[in-house]
Amino acid sequence: MPPDSNVAKKSDSPVRVEARHRVRLMLTCLCDIYFGEVGISTVKILEHLNCEVLFDKEQTCCGQPPYNAGDWSAARQVAGLTMRALLESEDPVVMPSASCAAMIREGYPVLYEGMMHPEVFELGEFLVHQLKIRSWPVTTANPPAKRRVAFHRACHGRGIGLTNEQEMLVGSLPWIQLVRIAQGEQCCGFGGAFCATHGAISAGIGMEKLHNIMKAGAEEIVSGDMGCLLHLDGLIKKNKLPLRTRHFAELLAEAIAP
């Protein structure tokens, strides 16, 4: 289906979430290290929807880097901290990354045999399925200029059953035109440490994705995972391509009145 047809009908009035939710933010290591704005946008989005956001300062990383590299004993140690810091409370845990959510939900039960799949949420998934948001409640008085955006679905989203949640919200912004990209369902080539140990293959996959995006006439790539975007942005800058990358949380936060 083309992205445009996925967009849910916009409601006449902005959605109000009446019940007050308390949620715990998992910032994710990439947002902690490089992309603070994505974390800030996530908090703004959730508060805009009447959620109370808690942030545990002891949190670090979900443990996926060593897990994917095959160092499962290291991964268990890191996962142990995440479980203590975030998973012991009753509040839902929300994170701006499908990859980290997939690690916790699908990876932890592999690391710890017999463990129930922990209930954590990727941000778009939480907004659409828990808060029942179909169309983003725009409140800004100064909407940005119209622009063409390519949405990249991060592969790890499908591991936790995500489909078009993030795109639907981004596509509901009046100034965003989502374009259809060839081979859109293909991976960006990041793959964690793979992108460095198999650099030529990873860059080859990434460049193919970027060329398909440029061919579609987009100027911006939006995704829900900073891993994909970190890699694509590195390729864009090295090759001086006329593209920029944004996390979808930043686009939604842009629509909130200051």
């Binding site: 490089y34 992309f35 992108c195 650099g199 030529a200 990434g206 590195g234 090295k238």
Partner: peptide, 21 residues
């Protein structure tokens, strides 16, 4: 050990915008 494999094809990432903490 991962740095060369990254920089051969990509620019190193830079911290952008505000720090969350």
């Amino acid at each position: 050990p991962l740095k060369d494999g990254w920089t051969e094809f990509r620019e190193l990432p830079k911290k952008e915008g505000r720090d969350f903490r």
